[in-house]
């Protein structure tokens, strides 16, 4: 359950970030070095936040060998 919850929030966060990059026209200016650096930093940040969302929501639950314990 927590897995699905986490993946849903990660999806929303990623979609929101991509939309923001699109509205900023990142897909047009990516060949400009400063833009490329900023887009790369933004994508890395999105990824790191996604990871943090996953482990803060799921905790140790996905790693329990016996779920009913």
């Amino acid at each position: 359950m927590k897995n699905i919850q986490a993946i849903f929030i990660m999806f929303i966060w990623t979609a929101f970030s991509i939309l923001l990059l699109y509205l900023l026209e990142a897909h047009i200016y990516y060949r400009e070095v400063v833009w490329a650096i900023c887009i790369a930093a933004a994508l890395l940040f999105v990824h790191m936040v996604n990871m943090a969302i996953y482990f803060n929501i799921t905790g140790k639950e996905p790693y329990k060998w016996f779920k009913s314990q």
């Binding site: 897909h27 990516y30 490329a36 887009i39 790369a40 994508l43 890395l44 990824h47 790191m48």
Partner: peptide, 24 residues
């Protein structure tokens, strides 16, 4: 943990710059 991900930044930059959407 943060530093480790920052080490990946040059790779991401390279692919963003070289290929935009296709690069990512």
């Amino acid at each position: 943990w943060i530093l480790g991900y920052l080490y990946s930044l040059p790779s991401i930059f390279l692919f963003v710059w070289a290929g935009g959407f296709f690069g990512v």
